[in-house]
């Protein structure tokens, strides 16, 4: 039943520098995760997306990027679903 979702998660993981993927529903419950993404983070990621959407309630939900020293997490809300992609920052070429 969830094979389509599994395929989407697997194909997202194939993208360069991607180290984790998470998809959660509107209630913060994770549908699926791959890589470093923790299924318990679904609630927090949905909460971040909900809070950010309140800044401009008349516009579409924004894409949020959380950056740390080595990793970036891109959060996007689409309808009733929220997705997060964990990426390793590419090393700058000298």
């Amino acid at each position: 039943m969830e094979s389509k979702l599994d395929n989407v998660l697997d194909s997202m993981m194939q993208t360069e520098n991607t180290i984790g993927v998470l998809i959660a529903d509107n209630q913060g419950l994770s549908y699926g995760t791959r890589g470093v993404a923790n299924s318990q983070a679904g609630g927090l990621i949905t909460a971040i997306a909900d809070q950010a959407a309140k800044i401009h309630p008349n516009l579409d939900a924004p894409v949020i990027i959380l950056e740390t020293e080595n990793t970036s997490v891109t959060i996007s809300k689409y309808g009733f679903h929220t997705g997060a992609i964990y990426k390793r920052k590419s090393q700058s070429k000298k």
Partner: peptide, 10 residues
Amino acid sequence: ESTNIGHLLT
């Protein structure tokens, strides 16, 4: 009905 259950469970 739209409570963030995942956040609550953390």
